[in-house]
Computed example of a mutant assay.
Amino acid sequence: MIQLTARELEVLQLIANGFTHAEIAERLQLTERAVGNAADRARMRLGAHSAPHAVLLAVRAGILEGRPKRRPGPARQPLTARQAEVLDAASDGASLSTVAQRLGTTTQQISARLSEGYLRLGVTHLPRDQRRAAAVDVARRRGLIPADRQEQAA
């Protein structure tokens, strides 16, 4: 039978819940290196080739319960200044090329910053066509981008 230490089990459970090594380190008051070492030891004990594979093997072995869903909540990390700027510029529903022209950059850069923002705001579980509006809503409620321009004019 495979034996994991309490720390390895704790780290593996948090990985199963979708937390990054940085988030786990903050939560457990460890260094990212210590988290990585615990994850590597768990992976080696289970004979896994990756962290997701380790989670799968641990679930199959009955060491972990099936992967629970991460509850929606506050942003795990705030938006960077550039992500907030791009999301604000895109908040009126303009196309990527229009937003890129407004900000003097490429559509690829705009797409990348929006995708990063969606992840940080926790809206990636939504269908693609709903993510931008949901991200704008969450960011406005949290004061990360200014309120709607029409509301500001009133």
Rank of each mutant, 00 (worst) to 15 (best):
L103C: 13
T98V: 10
L12R: 01
R141P: 05
E32L: 06
R7D: 14
T124A: 12
L121M: 12
T98E: 14
L12Q: 10
P74I: 10
Q108V: 09
P74K: 15
L28T: 07
V99S: 00
D137G: 08
Y118Q: 01
Q109C: 11
R132H: 09
A38I: 02
V123E: 00
L126S: 03
I24M: 07
F19Q: 11
L114K: 01
G62N: 07
A16I: 03
R76Y: 12
L57V: 15
H49L: 05
R113A: 07
R76M: 07
A135I: 05
G93C: 10
L87K: 01
L4W: 05
V86M: 08
E10Q: 11
R45S: 03
A133N: 04
R120T: 12
G122A: 11
E32H: 15
R41I: 04
I145C: 02
R67K: 14
A139C: 10
S97A: 08
N37D: 13
L64S: 04
D92L: 08
H125A: 06
R131W: 10
T107A: 08
A139Q: 00
P146H: 09
L121D: 08
R131Y: 05
P74D: 11
I63S: 00
E116Q: 07
P146N: 07
L56D: 08
G117H: 02
P78F: 05
L9P: 00
T80F: 03
A54P: 00
S91T: 03
Q108E: 02
T98N: 04
L87H: 00
R76H: 11
H125L: 03
G62L: 07
A90E: 00
A39F: 06
L14E: 03
A39T: 08
A39Y: 05
A100Y: 00
S95P: 00
E116L: 04
I145N: 00
L114E: 03
E85V: 06
T106W: 02
F19E: 06
L103Q: 09
A51P: 06
R128D: 07
R70G: 10
V35H: 07
R67Q: 12
R67H: 03
R141A: 15
E26Q: 15
V138H: 09
T124V: 15
L96T: 02
H49I: 10
A34M: 11
R71L: 11
Q150L: 15
R43G: 07
R132W: 04
L14A: 03
T106A: 04
A139L: 01
